[in-house]
Measured scan of single mutants.
Amino acid sequence: AVSDRLIGRKGVVMEAISPQNSALVKVDGETWRATSGTVLDVGEEVSVKAIEGVKLVVEKLE
């Protein structure tokens, strides 16, 4: 799938994300809905860990 190429890519949080709420991230110039197990604020850099349906699963870039 096209989205599989995004695993391992870096992105930027466009809307705050919490474990209860998905929000938008920008990866390679494209906007995607994403979820995370932690709270992520706007502007934080993230890494794509997986794809669940049409959502990216991201975590904060260390």
Rank of each mutant, 00 (worst) to 15 (best):
V2G: 10
V25K: 03
I17E: 15
D4V: 12
E62I: 12
G37W: 13
T31P: 04
S18P: 08
R5I: 07
L61Y: 10
L6R: 03
L56S: 03
L6Q: 00
A34Q: 02
V42C: 06
R33G: 09
L40N: 00
A50W: 07
V57C: 06
I7Q: 02
W32A: 00
V27Q: 02
E30V: 10
S22H: 12
V27H: 02
R5E: 06
E45M: 13
A50N: 06
V48I: 10
K55Y: 15
S22I: 12
W32K: 00
S18Y: 10
V42E: 06
L24I: 09
V48S: 01
D41G: 11
A23H: 07
L61F: 09
I17R: 13
R33T: 13
V25L: 03
I51H: 04
V58M: 01
V54P: 09
T35Y: 10
L40Y: 04
G53L: 03
L61V: 11
G8Q: 02
L40E: 01
I17V: 11
G37S: 14
E45Y: 13
T31N: 09
D4G: 10
V42G: 03
V27P: 01
V12A: 04
A23T: 08
A16Y: 14
S22F: 13
K55M: 15
E30P: 00
V25N: 00
L24Y: 10
L24D: 04
A34W: 04
G11C: 06
V57D: 02
S18E: 07
I17T: 15
S3H: 11
V48Q: 00
V46Y: 03
S36F: 06
R9D: 02
K10C: 13
E59C: 08
K49Y: 07
G11P: 03
G37R: 11
S3E: 07
I51R: 05
K49G: 03
V39G: 08
R33Q: 14
L61N: 06
K49R: 10
L24C: 08
T31R: 06
S36E: 05
K10E: 05
L40W: 04
G53R: 02
V54L: 14
T38Q: 14
R5K: 09
K49T: 12
I7R: 04
I7Y: 04
K49W: 06
G8K: 03
G29D: 08
D28E: 07
V42N: 02
A34R: 00
S22Q: 09
G8E: 01
I17L: 13
E44T: 12
V39R: 12
K26P: 02
L24M: 09
G29I: 01
R9Y: 07
Q20S: 12
L56M: 05
P19H: 11
D41Y: 15
K60I: 06
A50F: 06
A23V: 14
G43R: 03
L56A: 01
R33S: 12
K55H: 15
E52C: 14
E59I: 10
E45R: 09
V2A: 11
E45Q: 10
T31I: 14
V58T: 01
G43T: 02
A34G: 05
E44H: 06
E62V: 12
E62L: 12
N21R: 12
G37C: 14
V58R: 00
N21G: 14
K26Y: 13
E44R: 04
W32E: 00
T31L: 15
K10L: 10
I7T: 04
T31W: 12
R33V: 14
A1V: 11
V58F: 01
V42D: 02
G8Y: 03
E62K: 11
E44S: 08
D28I: 03
K60M: 04
V13N: 00
L6P: 00
K26I: 12
S47A: 09
S36K: 00
G29V: 01
K10I: 13
W32S: 00
R9G: 04
W32C: 01
A34E: 02
G29L: 04
V39H: 13
P19E: 12
A34V: 08
K10D: 04
A23Y: 15
R33C: 15
A16I: 15
L6S: 00
S47T: 15
V13G: 01
E52L: 11
R9N: 05
G53V: 03
E15D: 06
K49C: 11
Q20N: 13
I17W: 15
E62F: 12
K55I: 15
D41V: 15
S3Q: 09
G29N: 08
E59H: 05
M14W: 06
L6K: 01
E44P: 02
G53M: 03
E15I: 08
V25A: 02
L6M: 08
V13S: 02
E45F: 13
V13I: 07
V57T: 04
D41N: 14
L40I: 09
S47F: 15
T31S: 09
V57K: 05
E62P: 11
E52Y: 10
N21S: 11
D4A: 13
L40S: 02
V46E: 01
A50L: 06
G53S: 04
R33I: 14
E52W: 12
R9L: 11
D4N: 13
V2F: 12
T31H: 08
N21Y: 11
E62D: 11
S36Q: 02
A1G: 11
I51A: 03
E44Y: 06
A34Y: 07
Q20F: 13
A50T: 06
V39E: 10
K49D: 02
